[in-house]
Design a protein around this nucleic acid. Structure first.
Lengths: 362, 362
DNA sequence: GCGTTCAGCTAATACGTATTAGAGAGGGGG
DNA sequence: CCCCCTCTCTAATACGTATTAGCTGAACGC
């Protein structure tokens, strides 16, 4: 079968010609929700019939150029989400965003393309790609602050999943309350009798890491423990989580419990599983250990880690809801939402086994 | 902080005024890769300086309005993919589509919104929603043929993942070769000594189901078995897969092996697991059983089913590649790709245990 | 018969960019 | 002095839609 050269997409002008009306009328019928009432039924039907017959669909570019809406929400991630071992971490967010977007009657645009320069940037080719969407949900740890600031300057509506700060102004976000959740975890350990609790934090100073540290410090302070009980180490490489290494760290600080900030990939928890299995380190028999967040995988874990759990799907849905509120009221100021983390009791903490260092406050 | 009323973004006109040139010159400098050489250095630099100073970024909508393309590929699924237990089945497709789309420098638009009418239709509001994208990958079992036909009539570029047929013309698809894979599975069973092999097929007559049945029939025929050895039952409800029911079916047909077409949700395989566990039915000790496709979950299975496996990620990537070829050469005819399934040996088939029915051809 | 009102439509325009034809200046060759 | 060429830049236009001001004809009141 000979294949016809691709026809030009029908425009409102084509429909107008076909239905014997003007382009303006077509526009009113097709998209003018309010003004559409003023068009009498016969005309409306004629236009719609012509539209259907010609296979019309609006040109997004033209529509958004004009300032109209596309009923498109974007999802932009600062890290590649899909084909890595990080996907298990990000997938629940994606799920939530997708679900709520659909529920609100929007379609979802995944900004995934890497530019020719190999640069995964919002501003590619001097243009803000996100602008095709009405608004955007942002996600990811390795934020490029400059781009965030530029988005704010441009007044582009977006919501970050996770607390983010920029010098140049406020932004909207939906964040998990790491501070309270971490402080609560410290309190739980103190109640069990722990006094020296080591916090293994991630390198860098992204907000999630900072918030966990704040929560840890607050927990220590609220337990009435002295300042020299603030024990923090930075975990640069998950490979350092060998059983021997963990024991050495605990001994050095006299710690009986560990609070570990998990990574978004699978390596950290795998290292822990390995320390327990082949390293002979038992939780909580030798050491209490709690995770400051979810193990990355959403598949059943080998261990039931004591931890708190981010309500990822809920955060995502809230973010979409917030974004749509921003869209509906463009004059509104940036807003911040905080959602609590869920405590998961697990089975990796218990009473301290190493006796407290002599001379320590009870 | 008071929030400024949304500022107007600087445009090329603003830059032009600022730099004392025309808008056309600005356009040439900013985006005219080739023509940019013809602009003398001082002018170029002046324009770029002005652009930087004003914080210019190009308006995508305007750009793509002019050019026609949005560098957007769509993904439309005929069933809701995300929030159901079908997601494990569809997720690998999504993964592959996303990956290849990104690799090709496109962004991915997920058509997920349900229209106001509650109708999950391509044609909503008298318009073809898909047209927002340059082209579209389609996916799903419960195809609405009429819509497919309409897409073909409109010359909208799309590729289906899975073999589909429409009366009105040809369409492009990337399909798994169910026929060969199923025939091969029959041959494997025959080699083990099976003669009476029961095929449990899904209800309905979608292409995947038809292809599996064709493969089954071909396998029986190629093994030189007579026509009365073609044993087919339709499995309406996965709950019918109880151990008792399976035994009854096998007895009625004198079958020693079962070929089961899996569903896209988790119920079927769960029923099988259950038949084995609480129903005391052992594979392959009591009965050989192979799946005509993947168990739905991509998480580790309890049983290692003998089966063939669709190369879902690869099919998805091929579909995207094919779609982009269609876009690059609009005059090209629809194309069909077939990819082989991978045989997974598993541990649920073995020699027949019930002795062959007397009088049967060896 | 004249003004008024109203429904039902259209003409015109703006949105920001890319592209093309060509204007204007300057110079060199005949 | 004229022709032609090059170099640098600009005016004009198209892209498809949304929106607004306003046109037309009919109905109505007085």
């Amino acid at each position: 079968m000979a294949h016809s050269p691709r026809r030009r997409r029908p425009t409102q002008v084509d429909i107008a010609r076909h239905a014997g009306v003007s382009q303006a009328t077509v526009s009113l019928v097709i998209s003018g929700g309010a003004a559409s009432d003023q068009i009498p039924e016969p005309t409306r039907l004629a236009v719609l019939a012509a539209a259907r017959q010609l296979g019309y669909s609006a040109n997004v570019a033209a529509r958004s150029l004009k300032g109209g809406r596309n009923r498109l929400l974007g999802l932009y991630t600062f890290e590649p989400v899909f084909p890595t071992d990080q996907r298990d971490f990000y997938y629940p967010f994606l799920l939530g965003v997708e679900e709520e977007t659909a529920a609100q009657g929007y379609d979802l645009l995944l900004f995934s393309s890497v530019t020719s320069a190999g640069d995964r940037s919002i501003y590619a080719g001097g243009a803000n790609r996100l602008k095709i969407a009405d608004g955007c949900v942002l996600l990811g740890r390795s934020v490029r602050r400059a781009e965030l600031a530029a988005l704010i300057r441009e007044d582009f509506p977006f919501v970050f999943i996770g607390r983010r700060e920029v010098d140049d102004g406020e932004l909207s976000y939906v964040a998990a309350d790491y501070v309270t959740a971490t402080a609560d975890l410290v309190a739980a350990l103190v109640r069990l009798g722990h006094r020296r609790i080591l916090h293994l934090r991630a390198p860098g100073d992204s907000e999630p890491t900072r918030d966990r540290e704040s929560g840890y410090r607050r927990g220590i302070a609220e337990a009435g423990l002295p300042a020299d009980h603030v024990l923090i180490e930075t975990l640069t490489d998950p490979a350092d989580l060998s059983a021997d290494h963990l024991r050495a760290w605990a001994d050095r600080h006299g710690a009986t419990a560990l609070l570990v900030e998990p990574t978004e990939d699978t390596r950290l928890v795998e290292a822990l599983e390995d320390a327990a299995r082949s390293g002979g380190l038992r939780f909580p028999d030798d050491l209490s250990l709690a995770l400051l967040g979810d193990p990355p995988s959403w598949t059943p874990e080998l261990r039931d880690w004591t931890r708190y759990s981010l309500p990822r799907a809920r955060m995502a849905r809230e973010a979409v809801g917030l974004l749509i509120e921003l869209l509906d009221d463009p004059a509104s100021a940036p807003r911040q939402l905080s959602v609590p983390c869920a405590f998961v009791a697990g089975d990796t903490i218990g009473p301290p086994v190493t006796p407290p260092v002599p001379g320590e406050r009870s």
